[in-house]
Design a protein around this nucleic acid. Structure first.
Lengths: 294, 294
DNA sequence: TAGTAAAATAATATGATATTATTAAATATA
DNA sequence: TATATTTAATAATATCATATTATTTTACTA
């Protein structure tokens, strides 16, 4: 018993004759007769009575026909669904992003991609870079967007976009009115910054030590929004990605400071497992990221 | 895509490896690899990622697995049901019977057969012999039990049992006390009898005219039970099959009369279409009828 | 650095499933 | 009543799907 024989069987039932079914299936009549015979021998039942020249289903024939139709419907549905997946009419792509990207970039990326490809499910996880890397290695996400460095050699890292961190202060802070600020001045300030392990903090500390600028940290907050509010309230100054403060800079609630001769630069990266098969959907998402149309 | 490839696919998913699946399916690893490859090419999707040496389902792979499992369950169920039918653990046999047989014999036949073969569905129809013959020709029943003659040459007729009709009267009727009754005496009686077309009436009239016995009919009832009640009430005498009056004779409410030199004999027949396939169940039912174990 | 295990690849063998040709049986048609 | 016509069964053979064997590649392990 296989799908082919069941298809022949249902067609014979529909046509009421072997030769009719043969014509419909573009095969010869003996092939049809043989398929039915094989079914009957294999299942040890008679499927048809031939009364008055017509083929009439026996009881086991009727029962088998019911099953054959149900099986056929399922198979058709499976094929149609797979076709939809192949054509990207449906699908799933699991994204992971580190905190800053996940908070300030990913929502719009997913929204615009979802607009282009309806019925695509895009579950996403937001965590620090190390956790996102681990998820990739465990195959619990397909693509990652991270700000920090990747250690596994099994992961392919592609530059996504450049990011810059800026020192920020309140509009009421003395710095807000000044044009040129020497980096050494920061030693007098109350510095608010993200926790250890944060990519933002890592870039800040590395850059500061590279330039031998002394500083001391006053407040540690594991939440960029909380930091922004604290800075707005003039509790201190901080350093954050430019993508996190677009609104506040525009409205003037926060002020971006350029230290003379010091820039906090880093790259956002796209990461995926080297063994990952690049489905059409996968490639489309990468293309969407690089197009920047969002 | 066919059952074989889906089975290979689900086994690979269960085992987590191609060679493991090969072992489980008693085939070689290349055969498994090839089946998976063919599935992927045919459906135009990748089913597995090979990350960290392990085979991991892709999204389309997960979707296909769902369908494959559901299809597999249905196929198994179909095969198991057909096996049940082949072994007569389940089945269906459609019986037709003419009125007298259907009323007085069939219930016990079906009850005892059903006791021997549980889960066998035995729908039955009761009508006159001509209607039962027509049902056989239309294949709306499988086996008929009739008292009248069959006209179609496409129907096989096998004698089932001999039947005899008897003149009956009430225990209060003058005949009840007499031993010998000449058939001519009936011309004085109020005769109650079944309608035209009834097998019982046909045998009665044929036999009477064969012996040139004059008679006149007073009451016509299309229901043997009604006739028996009327005779019990001494409204008249009638003629009925011996199988219809066992209880009443035993209890003495009715009395069987033997006309000297006249017997109303007929045969009950088993009928079925000459082209009908004789399934095991069919043969078992015929055997049950002939065994008389009920 | 060799050894082991899993999977891919290629060549070939086997088995399932076609086709062609023919026969048989039943109907329809002249 | 004889003669096409239709339908299905049967047998011989051809073709295609799917198996095996042998080999290579790759990654992991001792």
């Amino acid at each position: 018993m296989n799908f082919r024989k069941l298809k022949v069987f249902t067609t014979v039932c529909d046509c009421g004759s072997m030769s009719g079914a043969a014509k419909k299936l573009y095969m010869t009549q003996p092939a049809v007769s043989q398929a039915i015979l094989e079914l009957e021998e294999e299942l040890d039942v008679h499927l048809f009575d031939r009364i008055n020249k017509k083929l009439l289903l026996t009881y086991p024939g009727e029962v088998l026909l019911e099953y054959a139709r149900r099986i056929h419907v399922l198979v058709e549905e499976a094929q149609s669904t797979m076709k939809d997946i192949a054509n990207m009419n449906t699908g799933k792509l699991r994204i992971g992003a580190s905190t800053t990207i996940g908070t300030y970039l990913l929502p719009e990326i997913i929204r615009s991609f979802g607009q282009k490809y309806k019925n695509i499910d895009i579950p996403f996880a937001i965590d620090n870079t190390g956790a996102i890397e681990k998820m990739l290695l465990e195959n619990s996400i397909d693509i990652g967007l991270v700000e920090g460095p990747i250690h596994s050699k099994d992961i392919i890292v592609k530059p996504y976009m450049d990011d810059e961190l800026f020192i920020i202060c309140s509009k009421n802070h003395p710095w807000a009115a000044r044009k040129r600020i020497g980096p050494g001045t920061i030693s007098d300030q109350n510095i608010i910054i993200r926790e250890q392990g944060s990519g933002t903090r890592e870039v800040f500390e590395n850059t500061m030590s590279k330039h031998n600028i002394p500083y001391s940290i006053k407040h540690v907050l594991n939440n960029t929004e909380a930091i922004k509010k604290a800075v707005e309230a003039n509790i201190g100054v901080s350093v954050v990605s430019e993508i996190a403060i677009k609104e506040e800079i525009k409205s003037g609630r926060l002020v971006k400071i350029n230290f003379e001769g010091v820039r906090f630069l880093r790259k956002f990266n796209i990461i995926y497992h080297k063994d990952k098969y690049h489905s059409k959907l996968f490639e489309e998402f990468l293309g969407h990221l690089c197009s920047g149309n969002f």
